[in-house]
C-alpha cells in the first residue's frame, strides 16, 4: 500500500479522510446523545421532510456524475465537454442548496430552531456544515473550470465526490433512523 497508488493527489485523500472523520465524529456524537432520549429524538426527527433529503440525494449523485464526466472529458482533451460537465455539476450543487434553503425555511417557520431539541442542534450543525462544503465545492468547480488543467479538475471533482460521499452517510442517521 504505497502513497502513489492513490488516484490523484495524495493531499486530496488526506482531506477526504479527515472530512469523513469529522462528520463521522459528529454523527457518532448525535447517536450517543440520542441514547439519553430516544423517543424525543424520534419525535424530533419525524418532523423533518425526508422526501426533500431523498430529492437532494438524487440531485447530488447526479451532480457527481457530471463532475466525473467533466474529469474524463478533460483527460481526453475535450475542453468544452469538461466545462459543460463542471457547470452542470455546479448547477446540481446550487439546486441542492436551493432545496436545503426551502427545507430550512420550512423548519424555522414550524418553530424548529437549533435549540428546540438536542436533535435539531445536531441536525443544523451537521447539515449546515455539509451545506457549507457544497457552497465551497461550487467555488472549487468554478475555479478549476477556468484553467482546465487535468490535475486540478481531478482534484476539484474529488472534492465534489467527497461532498457527495458525506451526504450519503449523513442521510440515514440524520433523516431516517427514527
Amino acid at each position: 500500500m504505497r502513497l502513489q497508488d492513490l488516484p490523484g493527489e495524495p493531499i486530496m485523500w488526506v482531506l477526504i479522510a479527515s472530512e469523513l472523520l469529522v462528520f463521522a465524529a459528529g454523527i457518532t456524537a448525535m447517536a450517543g446523545v440520542r441514547l439519553t432520549d430516544p423517543a424525543g429524538f424520534a419525535a424530533a426527527q419525524a418532523q423533518l421532510h425526508g422526501w426533500m433529503a431523498a430529492l437532494n440525494t438524487a440531485i447530488l449523485v447526479t451532480s457527481g456524475f457530471f463532475a466525473a464526466r467533466a474529469e474524463r472529458a478533460c483527460r481526453r482533451g475535450d475542453r468544452r465537454g469538461a466545462r459543460v460537465g463542471l457547470a452542470l455539476a455546479a448547477l446540481g450543487g446550487a439546486g441542492f442548496l436551493a432545496v436545503k434553503a426551502v427545507e430550512y425555511a420550512g423548519d424555522l417557520r414550524a418553530g424548529l430552531g437549533m435549540e428546540s431539541h438536542p436533535f435539531f442542534t445536531f441536525y443544523y450543525l451537521l447539515t449546515g456544515f455539509h451545506a457549507a462544503h457544497v457552497l465551497f465545492g461550487i467555488g472549487v468547480l468554478a475555479l478549476v473550470a477556468i484553467r482546465l488543467r487535468t490535475e486540478e479538475v481531478q482534484a476539484g471533482a474529488a472534492f465534489w465526490h467527497m461532498v457527495d460521499l458525506v451526504w450519503v452517510l449523513l442521510l440515514p442517521p440524520v433523516y431516517l433512523l427514527g
Binding site: M1, D5, L6, P7, G64, A157, A158, H161, L165, L169
Partner: peptide, 21 residues
C-alpha cells in the same frame, strides 16, 4: 448507504477495488 459509499469510492473517486487503500 455503504453500497452507495462503495460506488462513489470505486466509481467516481477511482479507488481500486481490492487494493490496500
Amino acid at each position: 448507504a455503504l453500497f452507495k459509499a462503495r460506488a462513489i469510492l470505486g466509481g467516481f473517486l477511482h479507488l481500486e477495488r481490492g487494493s490496500g487503500w
